[in-house]
């Protein structure tokens, strides 16, 4: 951390924070490697593996064929036998190609073997819409993964968390999915040099407020924060909680906030039906029913695949305005 002290205020885009996170891991964990499509020579299609091949060599930065089931299986087998793999799954939508390795092998092996197997595998993947990449390259499928006992799922919303959570994920002795967001790649903020952790399973209060709690996931945290300004103009003070972790979910931080605000809104990019917002709403009413002055509301995508046309995609993705509208509804304004 001494370097960081030398250079206060160093800013880094999300994409390079991911790069640094992976780099720190490969430096400090000799059993770690990264494998995925176009990660080595091309440095990943997003550019976040740039320079890794040069620093760590072919044995630890591994280009794979387009064989997601094989790649995920590589992560399962290698992690169960002493390695600490980072598996790169280019688009989150491609979990479909390797769901058996994820759901039936990776998540369950330890349990099925009576605790004898340990799978310290980290999967990096890219979710989210916004670039007209259409129905098979834009999804937010975190609820599929969070539904699997044995799996951890985190969604870093900014560069600081992306780096810290990648480091924490690789130090964790369980399979962890780090769900990144492609629309956030260029977002810049101060990121310390060197190694640091952002704990898995801890939410973070981003703005303080007394009138309502907004629990947001991934990129929606920024929309929620943008909505706070607009809400201020009409005299509403919203408290934004960045969930950060989907599984395990930090119910306590959310409940403590609701004890103060008495109202809650859950925001995510995934479709509403069956999305993680339903689970969070249920937890809130189980744990904090007596504190609620209004029903828990949700802002999420409509029940359709992600459309290609910008005209439709624009109205598909929740944003600050749709959050403001739902807040007004919650407060009966």
């Amino acid at each position: 951390m001494s370097e960081a002290e030398n250079k206060p205020g160093r800013e880094l885009p999300y994409v390079m924070a991911i790069n640094e996170g992976i780099r720190e891991v490969l430096r400090e964990q000799k059993d770690a490697f990264i494998a995925g499509e176009d990660v080595a020579i091309a440095g990943s299609v997003y550019g976040y593996c740039t320079g890794l091949l040069e620093e760590f060599g072919e044995d630890r930065v591994v280009d794979t064929p387009i064989s997601e089931k094989g790649i995920m299986g590589l992560g399962v087998g290698a992690s169960a036998t002493g390695c600490r793999p980072i598996i790169d799954l280019m688009f989150m939508d491609f979990v479909g190609e390797c769901m058996d390795e994820i759901a039936n092998q990776m998540a369950k092996m330890r349990f099925m073997f009576g605790g004898k197997a340990t799978l310290p595998v980290t999967v990096l993947t890219m979710g989210g819409a916004g670039g007209s990449l259409a129905a098979q390259h834009s999804q937010s499928l975190e609820a599929w993964l969070a539904h699997l006992p044995g799996m951890k799922v985190v969604m870093p919303s900014d560069a600081y968390d992306a780096k810290g959570m990648i480091i924490s994920a690789t130090r964790d002795n369980n399979p962890v999915f780090v769900v990144l967001n492609k629309a956030s790649l260029a977002m810049t903020m101060e990121v310390p040099e060197g190694s640091y952790e952002v704990p898995l399973g801890e939410a973070c209060v981003r703005t303080q407020g007394k009138d309502l709690t907004i629990v947001a996931f991934g990129r929606m945290v920024h929309e929620a924060i943008a909505s706070v300004e607009k809400l201020k103009e009409i005299g509403i003070e919203a408290e934004v909680i960045d969930a950060r972790s989907v599984q395990p979910f930090d119910t306590e931080t959310v409940v403590n906030s609701i004890k103060k605000t008495h109202r809650a809104l859950v925001v995510h990019e995934a479709v509403k039906f069956g999305g993680i917002g339903g689970e969070i709403s249920a937890q809130i009413q189980e744990e904090a029913f007596d504190y609620l002055d209004a029903p828990v509301m949700r802002v999420a995508a409509p029940f359709s695949p992600v459309p290609f046309s910008p005209a439709l995609e624009q109205i598909y993705i929740p944003n600050a305005d749709s959050i403001v509208a739902k807040v007004k509804e919650t407060l009966a304004l």
């Binding site: 007209s132 990449l133 290609f308 046309s309």
Partner: peptide, 14 residues
Amino acid sequence: GRSTGYCRGKGGSM
């Protein structure tokens, strides 16, 4: 991405 497209703008190139 127009409504007169083969897929009504829902599919796009891919």
